[in-house]
Simulated scan of single mutants.
Amino acid sequence: MPKICILTAAPDYFEDLGPARAAYQRLLGDDIAFRHWTDPGDLTSFDLVLPLLVWGYQRDCPRWFALLDQLEQHQINMANPVSVLRWNSDKSYLLKLEQAGIAIVPTVISAALTPDDIARATDKFGSNELVVKPPISGGADGTYRLRPGDPLPDSIAGKQILIQPFQPAIAQEGEYSLFYFAGTFSHAILKRPADGDFRVQEFLGGSESGTDCPEGAQDLAVVAREAAEQILGTDTLLYARIDMLRDAAGRFRLMELELIEPSLFFGHAGDGGALFARGVDAALTD
């Protein structure tokens, strides 16, 4: 029987991985292995390694990129591939997708964030509210909403930072996530922040619900995923979560392309995740 390993968060990670582990055991079998990404040991005996639960990797970037180098050196069969994981770790990939013609949330990068950068971005975007975040981030770590005159948080001042105009749709409608397994659409959800917030993570009070795809959402999702595959020269990705929202004109814009450790929300999939499991089986036989 093929041996599968799922890499997980460090032992001291604050979120409970239990439900996610149980979902993957239900889909892939009770005999799958789980290893902490921070100390995974020898992975060469596994037929397939999945980084699906490496939550918190952004908090130890040197160790994360060292692991990717090690996986590549030992030619570990990874899905998604190491080249994809490395590229997707840094959200500056959004600018590459924009160059490929993908409609993204407008984004600029400051090499070392200063108030002048905020002022220039305010003028460029014509927006009095900005969202700033580190290019390597997750779970809303280091993500702030800034208005004119707000002081720069100490945690991001002088650091490399992505700057985007705040999108009112996040509070008015929410953020859509579309899920694709081996290139086939599975399901979609709509995530909403708590009142007064703009972050949709559940541990921050956000909520999600299953939803049908509005017109135009799948069009953006497909071209964004295919553009990433073309940029990277890779085969169809085993899994992809595409996050998007509407701009002021009602056009969908890409927020993030989640290809490393996205929550996959199988509870909202009509088949409970069977399409994902079939994709894993196919990856094992390639």
Rank of each mutant, 00 (worst) to 15 (best):
S155T: 14
E98R: 05
R120Y: 11
I136R: 12
T114P: 10
K124Q: 15
N128K: 13
Y144K: 08
G101T: 04
Y144W: 10
A112H: 01
G126L: 07
R145W: 05
L130E: 00
D117L: 05
E129L: 06
D117C: 09
V105G: 01
L97Y: 05
Q99M: 07
V108E: 03
V132L: 08
S137W: 07
G149A: 10
I118N: 07
A103L: 10
Q99V: 06
E129T: 15
A121H: 09
V108K: 04
G149M: 10
I104R: 06
T122N: 13
R147K: 15
T122Y: 10
S155W: 00
V131Y: 01
V132K: 02
K124T: 13
A121Y: 08
V132E: 07
P151C: 07
K96C: 08
L130N: 00
K133Y: 02
G101M: 09
P148H: 11
D116Q: 14
V108N: 00
T107Q: 03
V105W: 11
D154F: 09
I136C: 14
D141L: 12
G138I: 10
S127Q: 11
D154W: 00
V105I: 15
A121E: 03
P106A: 07
T143S: 12
G149L: 10
I102W: 11
G101I: 05
F125L: 06
R147T: 14
S155C: 12
D150V: 14
D117P: 09
V132Q: 00
L146P: 02
L97W: 05
V131E: 11
P115F: 13
V131K: 04
E98G: 09
S137Y: 05
T122E: 14
V105E: 06
Y144Q: 03
P106Q: 02
G138P: 04
V132G: 02
A119R: 14
G138A: 15
K133I: 05
F125M: 08
P134M: 06
A140K: 02
I118K: 11
T122W: 10
L113M: 02
L97F: 06
P135L: 08
F125S: 08
A111W: 00
I136K: 12
I102F: 12
L97G: 03
L152N: 12
V131F: 11
Y144P: 02
L97T: 09
P135E: 05
L130H: 06
G138R: 08
D150W: 07
L97S: 04
P134K: 00
P148E: 14
T107Y: 02
A112N: 01
V108P: 00
G126I: 06
G139H: 03
L97A: 03
L152A: 11
N128S: 15
T107G: 06
I118E: 11
A121G: 03
G139A: 14
P135F: 11
L130F: 00
V105P: 07
K133V: 01
P115Q: 15
P153V: 11
D117S: 01
V131W: 09
G138K: 06
S137A: 08
